[in-house]
Simulated scan of single mutants.
Amino acid sequence: MISADKTSAAASLSSLSEAQKGASPFDLRDYLNQRQELVESALDASIEVVYPEKIYEAMRYSLLAGGKRLRPILCLATCELAGGTLEMAVPTACALEMIHTMSLIHDDLPAMDNDDYRRGKLTNHKVFGEDIAILAGDGLLAYAFEYLAIHTRNVAPDRLLKVVARLGNAVAATGLVGGQVVDLDSEGASDISLATLNFIHTHKTGALLEASVVSGAELASADSDTLEKLTQYARNIGLAFQIVDDVLDITATCEELGKTAGKDLQAQKATYPSLWGIEESKRQAQQLVQGAKAALATFGDRALPLIAIADYITERKS
C-alpha cells in the first residue's frame, strides 16, 4: 500500500536537517513550512489507491486536504528535543495525522456535528456518502497503527509499544471518544459546569495533542523528567487551543475558518466564551500558554520550536 518516493522523502529529511544548522533567530513560519512539506510528502506516499478504489480515494481525500499539521509537527519537534531524529518520528507523525483525520471525518457526520465543510472543502460524507465516510474514518484509524508499527526504524521495541498504547489511550473512551460522548450529551443543556467543559476538551481535543507531544519524546527514549515537563506543556496548549477555537467560532468568518462558523451557538453548546466571555477566554488561553512555556525552561534553545508553537496557538486566525 506504500507508494514509491522513499528517495524523495529521505532527501527532504536530509535537506531539512542541513537547513536548520546554525539558524538564528528562530523563524517559526519557515520551520512550519518545512515541516508541513515533509509531512505532506510522507502522507502522500503512505496510501496508494488500489482496489476497491473508492475507499482509498475517500481516505486520501480527507488525509491530504491540508491543514496546519500541528500534531505531526509537535511529534517531530519533541523527538528532536529529546535527542532523536526526524526519521524515527515520521511514521508516528503520519499515524497521528491519520487518527486526527478520522476524528474530523466522523465529527462532521450528520449524527455528530453535521458540517458540510472542512478545511475549505466539502466534508467527506458530502463527497462520498455517509457510509463510505464512516468506513474511511475506520480505515484510517486501523491503518495508523499498522503504519507506525511497520515503518518505524531505530526505535527500541519497548518504546514503540508505549507509543502504540499511548495513541490507543488518546483515541479510545479514555480520550477522544469519551470527550465526544460527553460533548454530545451536553448539547442544549444550560447548566454545563466548567469542570464538565474542561473534561470534554481535555479528552476530545487535548488527549491527542498530548499524545503527539509526548510520543515524539518517547520514541527518543526521553527520561521521566522530560516526559513530565512535556506532558504539562501539552496539557496547557491543548486547553488553550480549544479556548481559541471557541473564540474563533464566534469571531472568525467561514472563509477564515475553512468550515462553518457559529456552529457552537447553533448546536447550543457550552463554550469557554459562553462561560467567561471573549476577553476573559483570551486571557485564560494566554495564561495557559505562559504556563506551557514555563514548563520548557530547562531545555534552552532545544525548546524554541515548541515555545513558538505555543505562542502561535493564541495568535492564530483559523
Rank of each mutant, 00 (worst) to 15 (best):
Leu148Asp: 12
Ala149Val: 15
Tyr147Ile: 08
Asn154Lys: 09
Asp185Ser: 00
His151Tyr: 03
Phe145Thr: 14
Asp158Ile: 00
Leu184Tyr: 02
Tyr143Ile: 04
Ala172Gly: 03
Glu146Cys: 14
Ile132Ser: 08
Leu135Cys: 10
Asp158Cys: 04
Gly137Thr: 11
Val177Ile: 15
Arg153Asn: 11
Leu176Ala: 07
Tyr147Thr: 12
Ala144Lys: 11
Val181Glu: 01
Ile150Asp: 15
Glu146Thr: 15
Leu160Ile: 06
Ala156Arg: 00
Asp185Leu: 02
Ala149Arg: 14
Gly168His: 05
Glu187Asp: 03
Ala133Leu: 06
Asn169Cys: 00
Ile150Met: 11
Arg166Pro: 01
Leu167Ser: 08
Arg159Thr: 05
Val163Gly: 01
Pro157Phe: 10
Val181Asp: 07
Ala189Thr: 00
Ala172Leu: 13
Arg159Ala: 02
Gln180His: 02
Glu146Asp: 15
Leu160Lys: 06
Ala142Glu: 12
Glu187Thr: 01
Val163Trp: 04
Glu187Phe: 00
Leu148Lys: 08
Asn169Trp: 06
Asn169Leu: 11
Arg153Lys: 11
Ala189Leu: 15
Ala156Glu: 07
Ala170Gly: 06
Leu160Val: 04
Ala172Thr: 12
Ala149Asp: 12
Asn169Ala: 10
Gly178Ser: 01
Asn169Gln: 12
Ala170Gln: 04
Asp158Val: 01
